[in-house]
Write a protein that binds this DNA or RNA. Sequence first.
DNA 1: TATTGTTATACTCTATAACTATA
DNA 2: TATAGTTATAGAGTATAACAATA
Lengths: 169, 169
Amino acid sequence: MKKVFEMDLEARLVGQAEHPEALRLWLRLLTCTQLIEKQVRAGLREQFETTLPRFDLMAQLERAPDGLKMNELSKRMMVTGGNITGITDQLAGEGLVERVDVAGDRRACRICLTPAGRKQFSGMARAHEAWVVQALGGLTDKEVATLHRLLGKVKAHVKTAVTLSLENP
Amino acid sequence: MKKVFEMDLEARLVGQAEHPEALRLWLRLLTCTQLIEKQVRAGLREQFETTLPRFDLMAQLERAPDGLKMNELSKRMMVTGGNITGITDQLAGEGLVERVDVAGDRRACRICLTPAGRKQFSGMARAHEAWVVQALGGLTDKEVATLHRLLGKVKAHVKTAVTLSLENP
DNA sequence: TATTGTTATACTCTATAACTATA
DNA sequence: TATAGTTATAGAGTATAACAATA
């Protein structure tokens, strides 16, 4: 049996007694996310020959029956518009999504999953869910709920802070 | 006051009642990490003209008075060796770290912070800590402790699973 | 043979900024 | 003028694989 606890990002804190707990928490948050994200990226690449941003874009569309406009995708995925164009071009080239005209605004378009895209996504989503459930399998239902609630507070606080700092530069 | 809760990655779950809570938790974890990480990267770039991997490497060295070998840095930062060489080259070119011979193994070297590197790092670490404390400022001490403990369980479980899956391919 | 570190390379992801077309 | 989307580009970040020197 190999040793499970290797040194990692958190190692940089050893011996720094004066660091607030918030810093320890952040490093642990980062480590957990990176560990799970690496597994998800590897799975998407090996089993589906795709990437996380491509999966994310399709996941957004799967929940939007009428599709989403480019700028809406840009906001939700937290990346700038040019990147959405690029990913959309790839997926459209493979017939997984399509651009649909928007009535009343000839500048805009909605991006929609094609039937082929919907079908492929459902397989990926199933695998993705299994990876995540496995990764978080060490927690009880109650612990999952607690984490979800507390991270909700973090998210609300950070989003507020970001908004305010953008509004008052 | 601008609306704080925009749609984001988590939006892809709306309406999917059959999804386990684990998936919701994962998306929230990812969103929180990305939000904070974006702020940290922006701060490092704007205030110190550096990047997160460079900061991470220096942070590892700051806690290792005798420096660290390349393969040790590679393990801790969870990236492959060639990248460590690249970052080390940059930092060494700016006089912030140095390669030191290892007695008894002429293949290896230890990477150490120089006095200049140590000095620059201390300023960055102070700012970094302030950003993180601000980002997590919406939580009570008790909530921070709870999150830290629960994420510790996640980390242990994922690391065990990764190790096992690597050992039994 | 195995390990340490380096080099070369390719690819994904991202932001920025200039651009076109439409509102 | 402002907005929706595109294009072009540069740079960060990463993995892979071939390589040299040493163990």
